[in-house]
Structures are given as structure tokens and as C-alpha cells.
Design a binder for these strands. Sequence first.
DNA 1: CTGCGCCTCCGCCAAAAGGGGGAGACGCAA
DNA 2: TTGCGTCTCCCCCTTTTGGCGGAGGCGCAG
Lengths: 213, 213
Amino acid sequence: MIRLVLVEDEALVRLGLRQLLAFDARIDVVADAANGLEGLALIELERPDVVLMDVRLPGLSGVEVLKAMRAKGLATPVILITTFDEEAAFLQAMHAGANAFLRKDISLEDLRAAIDAALAGERVFRPAITQVAQRRLFEMKASFPAAVLPDPLTPREIEVLRLMAAGLSNKEIAESLHAGEATVKTHASSILSKIGVRDRTRAVLKGLELGYI
Amino acid sequence: MIRLVLVEDEALVRLGLRQLLAFDARIDVVADAANGLEGLALIELERPDVVLMDVRLPGLSGVEVLKAMRAKGLATPVILITTFDEEAAFLQAMHAGANAFLRKDISLEDLRAAIDAALAGERVFRPAITQVAQRRLFEMKASFPAAVLPDPLTPREIEVLRLMAAGLSNKEIAESLHAGEATVKTHASSILSKIGVRDRTRAVLKGLELGYI
DNA sequence: CTGCGCCTCCGCCAAAAGGGGGAGACGCAA
DNA sequence: TTGCGTCTCCCCCTTTTGGCGGAGGCGCAG
């Protein structure tokens, strides 16, 4: 019996995944969690054979849970799932040692194959991953992994990004943060260059994708 | 037996909903569809007692399917579900004659109650709807319904909005559409005023919310 | 035929955004 | 102590955005 822990915040998706997994008699979903912190605790408690986890979660993200697991010496295979193609999260997940990275619109076969491969210690990223991400993967293997990983935003930058997403202008953000507009512009420029976009519209979208917002 | 047609594009959510509905022995999910067009065809074919449908769907949106149903004289109760609070879609759904409008993070009890109420011809919008939307609902009842409904975007404006969301500048959008930058600026301004935002960042977010993107 | 909505563009103008570089203050870790 | 990163702010500059009014063409419904 394959003992699996499921971490997924959206109840319907969680139900859907349980249902999907129920089709495979070898798999036993021993526990599920709706957020990262709870998930991490459950994983430590249950010591499952494999973890199926959403990338975007309230509190700790899937990638953060994965990092925490690895930091604690837990080598449990982890399969990350995501709603959209999240290239940056994908790269971070790769780096953090995820065993698979799948989109939510996968078939049962893909999921089963990913679980089998993960149990065997393989790392699969084929099903439903963007070609862009695949190409980046090669680049990553060929160069320094850290070089292609997105520069993490500082706490202040994340605040600014979130206020950007709320539709505030730099001046309004400055007022909101009790800082000068020049400061906000500095942060804004830094955010844009870090996440590799050239305007705030894309920054917000990308921030959404990266889980910052 | 309550014959129900389920229209939901995301496979996992569809599975989750089927699973949720399976807990109620009275309900028989006679068919499901993954897009609006297919959903509409199935509804016409199956003539179910109630329709459970996502608002955002590929091709025809849930609201559009609902309008098409009503235009064809189908009075089948329709329960719309949505991932986020989508105020505009909510108002449109109200206007189009939806029987319920629920968020996806509902409980089985809420869903069951909504189905029962819908079958009885009631119109419920209580569970999990924003207070803003509730307030607007009262305003709507008190004034002309059309007055609070957001001005629909023209096809060209939708194209522009989508390119905005792709992070293109007005000039790039112009090139992409083989039009002048001035034209794009006109469309852009029109979009902003129609959806009631003051910059493209919020326009994209709102567009996402309204299902335009 | 006459509106009306949509798409196409103009000009003008103010505001906002974004890039460049520089710089001081702070705290923290090597 | 000496970096290093972060946060703060300044300058100057170009580009972009968005609001304003105006206008012609086109197709479609009343």
C-alpha cells in the first residue's frame, strides 16, 4: 500500500484528487491538509511514502513546505501540482528537490505514472509542463542552478507588490507605507527587474503566479 | 430523483463536485460538460431538473449559457458557482435569472440547500457571497437593474484588454492589432471607464474577475 | 433615411511609470 | 571591523499612460 499525504487548500480539488486517487487501489490517502503548515506537520507525523501537494497554499507555499521537509532531512518524494504553468515556481520546485511538477488538468494515468516514478526516486516533469519551462530546465542543467532561479523579493518589496496588485499608484503606495514616492519607485524598479518583467501589470500577474500575492 | 447537469471545465473540480453530489442519494448527475457550448447542448438534450454550472468556462461563459437557456425558453433552475467573488458576474447572473450564485468553497449543506431552493423556484444568493455584492443587490432591487450592470466591452475592447493582460504596451497592442496607437488608447480609455478602474493594472485584474481574460 | 454603436484616428496635455546613477543609515553576520 | 543586504531618499531623464474633445467611415436596426 502506498501511503500518500495530500495537501491542497481548495476543498473541491482536494475531493477531486482523493476521488482520482481512489481509482488506484494501491494508494491510501492517509491524511490531507488544507494549508502548508498543517501539511508539513502531517508529513512529519505520518511519514508517508509520497506527498501530493499544491504549489499555492495559504501560509506556507508548497515549495516552502518542500524546502522545510528537505531541511529536516525528509527525503519523501514530493509531487507538486499547480493550476497554471508557473515557471518560476517550477524552477524553485526543481531546485528544492521536487520529484514531479504537474498541472491540475492531468489525467489519472499521468498522476499514477508520476507517483510510481516518484516512488522509484525518479524526477519527472514531463506531463503538462510548458515548453518554456522545459527549455529552461535544460539551461538550468547546463549552467548554475541558482542563475536561473528568480531572485526572491524582500519583505518590503512584497508589500509594495501587493499594493501594486491592489491598484495603487506609487504615490498611494508611499502614503500607505509611510514612505517617500522615490522609495516606492526604487522598490518597484527592483521588483520588475527581479521577476523579469517590464511593467507593473505583468508584475502583478507574475506575482500572482509566484504566490507573492 | 433529482436530475442534475454539471458544467465545469476543471476536471478536478468536476470530480470534486460529483463526489460532493454523490453524498446526496436524491441527486443523479445525468451528464457533465467541460465547456459552455457542450453544456448548453446537454441541457437542451437532457432537460434536467437543475443545472450546476461554473461561471467561467471556455467558450461560452456560465452566464452566457444561462442567457441562452432563458432565451430558448428553458426555465430550468441554474446554480452558478465561481472560484472568486465575482461581483459583476454575480450581477449579470442575477439579471439573467440565475437561481443561486455560490462560491466554490461551499459546504455540502450549502450546496444541497441551494439545490433544494432552486428546485422550489427560489433564488438564493446568501451563502458565501460578498457583502458588497449583497449591498449592490439591494441597490439593484431599488433602482433600475440595468443601471448597476457593468457596461459590456465590445469585441475589440476585449481583444485590447487581453493584450493588456499579456503585458503589451499600447504601441505593441497597436502593432499586434494592425491599428494605430491612438486607436488603442481610445479603446484602453473606454475599457477603464467601462469597468470602473483607473489604470491597466486593475483593469487586467478586473478583466480576470469578469471572465474577459 | 436616420440614428446609433463601433472602429478608426487626430491633437493636446498632465500624470505616472520606469531607467540610470548616487548616497546615507541600519542591522546582521562573518 | 568590514562587508552585505535592506530600506530610505535624491537627481535627471525618457517613455507610457490616461483624460479631453473632436471627427470620419461603416454597418445595422428602427
